[in-house]
Design a protein around this nucleic acid. Structure first.
Lengths: 140, 140
DNA sequence: CTCGTATTGTACTAATTGTATCATTGTGTG
DNA sequence: CACACAATGATACAATTAGTACAATACGAG
């Protein structure tokens, strides 16, 4: 597949900036396996046209994702989902980083009013969904 | 519809503060269906110009309406009548926001090279730790 | 291979929008 | 009159999005 449709749903009144919504949804689609490492994203201009948004807004979203090493933007080439880099960190650091990440996640969810049960349930749910998606893609 | 006229009648001698009149009339128009959820209101400056009033006065009215969750003001974007979704829709949105949050979390963890098992384990662990901490802090 | 051109992302700036803070005005009360 | 307080205005600021010019890359014509 050379071209990805990348269906994004923007809510212009949600309070979340457009660029944030783009960032979130791309990340989400990556987790769900809708987007995979190596996939080419639409050009900033193409996606902007489709979303009826200025291309700089898309560029901003891409830049954020790029800084997070989630995508790789290359001038004159395009934008691609990065291959998952093997994180070469010590076991200790590794654990600490997951702990921090997890605490931040739980903290944010709690702040949004979700109960621990809901958080726990959703994590189970999404991990399961993810696993199933990965099984299917073995066929390709 | 991209632009709303929003005809307001101010009485500068009524004794009622301008901002109160603006608040009242917008609320009234919302009740009467002249304004509908999702509608964009004029910018503070545009409405102020039309009403021959300082834009801070409009901003004050908007802020009051915002605090009452009647409108949603967004810096750099504009001001909109809040969607008042029925509870089940609200529940849906709530779930989607947790879903997105969770997906982002799992995505980051995975990108850092953590397995699903590790993620799952860490979430359980931190939730447990958290719960125990909460029991203690009941004393405060 | 070389060059021109289209395509793609980047950088910088401007425009639009709401926010925060303080000053001014007006009005009522002692 | 003097003071307090509420309403309004002035000014500077911050966030978001858009406009414009530019630079790197790809790619086909010659």
């Amino acid at each position: 597949m050379t071209e990805k449709q990348l269906t994004l749903q923007l809510d212009f009144h949600s309070g979340l900036p457009i660029y944030t919504q783009i960032v979130n949804q791309i990340q989400s689609q990556l987790v769900n396996g809708i987007l995979k490492p190596g996939d080419q994203l639409p050009t900033v201009r193409a996606l902007a046209l489709e979303l009826r948004v200025n291309f700089n807004t898309v560029a901003r979203a891409y830049r954020i994702l790029d800084e997070a090493r989630i995508i790789s933007t290359q001038q004159g080439r395009g934008t691609f989902i990065t291959e998952i880099p093997p994180p070469e960190v010590s076991e200790k650091l590794r654990n600490e980083s997951l702990l921090e990440l997890t605490d931040r996640f739980i903290g944010e969810a709690t702040r949004l009013g979700f109960s621990e049960r809901e958080v726990s349930q959703m994590v189970r749910d999404r991990l399961k969904t993810r696993k199933e998606a990965n099984v299917q893609e073995k066929d390709e």
